[in-house]
Amino acid sequence: MNDQKQLNRWRLILGSQSKDQISFGGEGFRAMESGIGCEDLEEALDFLYSREYGEDVRREGGTGASRLTTAGWITKIRRLFPKETVEVLERHALERYEMQELLTDKEVLEKLEPNQELLKTILQLKHLMKGPVLDTARRIVRKVAEEIAEKLNREIRRSLLGSLDRNTPSHVKSMRNLDIRKTIRRNLSHYDPEEKRLVLEQVYFSSRTRKYNQWRVVIAVDESGSMLDSVIHSAVMAGIFAWLPMLDTRLVIFDTQVVDLSAHLEDPVETLMSIQLGGGTYIAGALQYCEGLIENPNRTMVILVSDLCEGGSIGGLLGVSRDIIESGAKLICLTALDRDANPVYDRRTAQRLADLGAHVGAMTPEMLGDFMGKIMQ
């Protein structure tokens, strides 16, 4: 029985091309205990992966069995496979096999799993959409953007809405607010010398003091194709900043041109759908535009989100960066991250910017919020 299960698995891996060499047998490979047989699994996998052999899997009619439609395939894989597997299959369909009909057919698009990978693909192919399909895409963009915002909002607001006030006790008992020094000092009388143990009768926490002295934050995001994940998070993050009372937020995106999206910050859909991916990269030009938005340098942060691969003159980039820093404004360079959250950027340019006094590094939203909070103090 185990041997037959292994053969069934190999048949699924190799696909229907191997039917003359390997046949399904035994009680059949059951998926998710739902009575689904090997043939169902093979049909769903063949619909996608037969493209490796150049087959026109979309044709219908003829003397063979009827073929799945794209909409039927989406329905089927959702019934056959767990969510994580469905997302992998959908990603392969879009990225590896360029099945653009997934995004140009309203019925199919509505069945896709809303997630960040789908959002990225919509942003890349939105020029192919129109009418009801575009309306559906915008709903997906809003849903995914709101999910990302919900996560980022918790991290950013916790970091930015105040600094620790060591003089005022807090009723919020969290490790983030723990006043360890006060806790030890107030409990020293309960130290057990024999056990060499400090007994804590009371644990003290610090409150947060809110600050409303407004700072201007200018976020400049490189919209070249490799920066897509960073563009999405930056756009959503800027929208969160726009709601915070201590920040006056501006958002610009750039390639060789600069587009100011500050007017759309409160609507993440408009912000994201305005992104035009690809093209060259002219960081110096973007920073020159940002420099023009600086009114009070001592209360301004310019946040550059880029892989720092400058398409123009490095001298020009360093020159405008020096001007921003010497004006008294803070220049923060957030480097791009790959899918595994590893920094991907031009390290030589990063070092030269750091030598000028820019703050350069990869930061999570919470780390950025903490860093900004320290600057604002």
Rank of each mutant, 00 (worst) to 15 (best):
131 G>K: 10
133 V>A: 04
134 L>E: 15
136 T>K: 13
137 A>V: 06
138 R>S: 13
139 R>Y: 03
139 R>M: 13
139 R>D: 10
142 R>L: 02
144 V>C: 03
145 A>M: 05
146 E>G: 04
146 E>D: 15
149 A>S: 15
151 K>Q: 15
158 R>S: 15
158 R>V: 11
160 L>G: 10
162 G>Y: 00
163 S>I: 12
164 L>S: 08
165 D>L: 06
167 N>D: 14
168 T>S: 08
171 H>C: 12
172 V>F: 08
173 K>N: 09
177 N>G: 04
179 D>N: 11
179 D>V: 01
181 R>I: 06
182 K>Q: 07
184 I>V: 14
184 I>Q: 02
187 N>I: 01
188 L>A: 03
190 H>E: 10
191 Y>S: 04
191 Y>M: 06
191 Y>H: 01
194 E>R: 11
196 K>R: 09
198 L>H: 03
199 V>F: 09
200 L>A: 02
200 L>N: 04
200 L>Y: 00
201 E>L: 05
203 V>M: 05
203 V>P: 09
204 Y>Q: 11
205 F>N: 12
206 S>I: 04
209 T>Q: 12
210 R>N: 06
210 R>F: 01
211 K>H: 14
211 K>W: 10
213 N>A: 15
213 N>K: 14
213 N>V: 07
215 W>A: 06
217 V>E: 08
218 V>P: 02
218 V>I: 14
223 E>S: 12
223 E>Y: 05
224 S>K: 10
226 S>Y: 07
226 S>W: 10
227 M>R: 13
230 S>V: 02
231 V>P: 07
231 V>E: 08
232 I>K: 08
232 I>Q: 05
233 H>Y: 10
235 A>V: 12
236 V>C: 13
237 M>V: 04
239 G>D: 02
239 G>W: 07
245 P>K: 04
245 P>C: 00
245 P>H: 00
245 P>A: 01
246 M>P: 03
251 L>A: 01
